[in-house]
Amino acid sequence: MPTVTKDVKPHKPLPAPNTDFYYLYETLPAEELAIVKRVREFMETKVEPVITDYWVRDEFPFELLPAVKELGIGGVAMKGYGCAGGSLALLGFIQMEIARIDPSFSTFLGVHNGLAMGSIYIDGLD
């Protein structure tokens, strides 16, 4: 009597998490999308491996600041004065990328770029 076997479908790999369900990153021009990808790589490789430990200890990772400077996002969306420039959409995508790994880190940059530099940029005069 033949053995009855049930066809078993081989497991296909599960999709990686995708938070760009409506392809909104494609609304950025190529040069700005490249900056966002650079920020994502920095956050995933430099910040994510260490940040939970800092979070638990209530400490700030000062040793990451030179690498943040290298990213060249200081004063993003501000024109002149040595600022990074770019669109306000770029600023938004960068802040979203950073918060995706660590909301504390995006807040630190938001205070620096937005509240401090932004106040001078918006309400200061030459």
């Binding site: 938004g92 995508f93 990328e97 918060a99 995706r100 660590d102 938001g110």
Partner: peptide, 12 residues
């Protein structure tokens, strides 16, 4: 900016 940041927080 906080609207973007909170969306990033949700994504993470």
């Amino acid at each position: 900016a906080v609207a973007w940041m909170s969306t990033g927080c949700a994504m993470g």
